[in-house]
Design a protein around this nucleic acid. Structure first.
Length: 363
DNA sequence: TATTCGTGGTC
DNA sequence: TGACCAAGAAT
């Protein structure tokens, strides 16, 4: 069986580098993290950009750097403030890992982001892609940074038919990049591949007639650019019924709960809620009983206010939203608070609960 | 290795 | 409109 990289020897690597980097120098977007090569800012941008679109990241990046401009600033920040700055971006463990890693750099490396693959790879949240991205972009080190764009572009350039959904496949592309990467400008080489994937060599209907490297592209010559890359699909989401409750005291304060420090939406805040296993059978009684057990809250259940479906990448919440009255004195706990409507704004909520608060509490 | 971990945009 | 997608890492 032929090697998946058999076409690598047919590529004019010097010409490919020149055409690719030349295009990037002319056509790259002006992005806030491209104003300088501050390793900390490059790092923050790469974490934010994981599985997240550039247009979504831009305002978050600007606010985040404004609020936490240096490694020192992020190191000394409260995690609740950091999560609040990340609110709505998703994959919240990214920013908790980032703060953990930044604190390690602050203490162990005197605030200087490591510039070796071995050291930087030990940092929490820094995997093979992010390590290569920081090393090449911030330090000019010729290390592969293989993301989804790079796999898509190279699968077409080199006609690689392996399934890019499989984790082991990334190494095939790393091997190719090690042969192809510009040692004069590894930063622009890596960024150009990703920029090309974002702007030209798109997942559907790639703009081959505008592509600066189409003469180097095996798929373009074969006409297979719409068949590549091979990517198997993921499974369907499982559905979960949730009963969430807006619990008020007599002064219109609202009770909120901090989620566990691990798992889905870790350390974010939410309304008291419970999973409903047998929907439509004494649902209010179930909720009242389980909230007593889980949070030690005594409540009188009120009306069903509405319903909300929230789709995650791997599951679907169907939330029934109730109101309720607190019927005994509230006892403070680390993970349960009672707050005013104004104070709600200080806490980081998942988007599903942001919507509930906006619709049923603030208006 | 396969699954978990968010969200908003797109077709 | 539902399925897929977007600069992945941890477990």
């Amino acid at each position: 069986m032929a090697s998946s990289l058999e076409n690598l020897t047919k590529v004019d690597i010097a010409g490919f580098q020149k055409d690719l980097i030349g295009w990037f120098e002319e056509e790259q977007r002006e992005l806030p993290w491209r104003k300088d090569q501050d390793p900390y800012k490059v790092w923050v941008s790469e974490i934010m950009l994981q599985q997240t679109r550039v247009d979504t990241v831009i305002p978050y990046f600007n606010r985040f750097i404004d609020q936490f401009p240096t490694i020192e600033a992020l190191s000394s920040a409260d995690e609740d403030k950091v999560l609040k700055a990340w609110e709505g971006l998703g994959y919240y463990s990214r920013v908790r890992n980032l703060q953990t890693a930044v604190r390690e750099v602050h203490e162990k490396y005197d605030g200087v982001v490591p510039n070796t693959l071995k050291s930087i790879s030990t940092l929490k949240g820094v995997g093979p892609y992010t390590a290569g991205a920081i090393l090449s972009i911030a330090y000019g080190i010729p290390e592969p940074a293989v993301d989804g764009n790079v796999m898509r572009v190279l699968s077409r350039i080199l006609s690689i038919w392996e399934d890019i959904a499989k984790p082991a496949t990334r190494k095939v592309f790393e091997e190719a990049i090690r042969e192809m990467i510009s040692h004069d400008n590894p930063s622009f080489f890596n960024q150009a591949l990703m920029e090309l994937g974002a702007l030209v060599c798109t997942p559907t209907s790639p703009s081959c007639l505008l592509c600066p490297v189409r003469d180097h592209c095996h798929a373009f010559h074969e006409g297979t650019q719409n068949e590549l890359p091979i990517k198997t699909k993921n499974k369907n989401q499982r559905k979960v019924q949730i009963g969430a409750v807006i619990i008020r005291d007599e002064e219109d304060h609202v009770i909120i709960h901090k989620r566990p420090k691990e798992g889905l939406l870790a350390n974010l805040w939410e309304l008291p809620n419970t999973e409903i296993h047998l929907p439509f059978i004494n649902e209010k009684d179930q909720i009242k009983s389980e909230l007593k057990q889980a949070y030690n809250l005594d409540i009188e259940m009120g009306n069903l206010l509405g319903q909300l479906e929230h789709v995650f990448s791997h599951l679907i919440w169907n939330i029934n939203i109730y109101e309720a009255k607190l019927t005994s004195d509230f006892k403070h706990a680390n993970d349960v608070k009672i707050v005013t409507k104004t104070e709600l704004e200080e806490f980081a909520f998942p988007v599903s609960y942001q919507k509930i608060i906006k619709h049923y509490i603030n208006e």
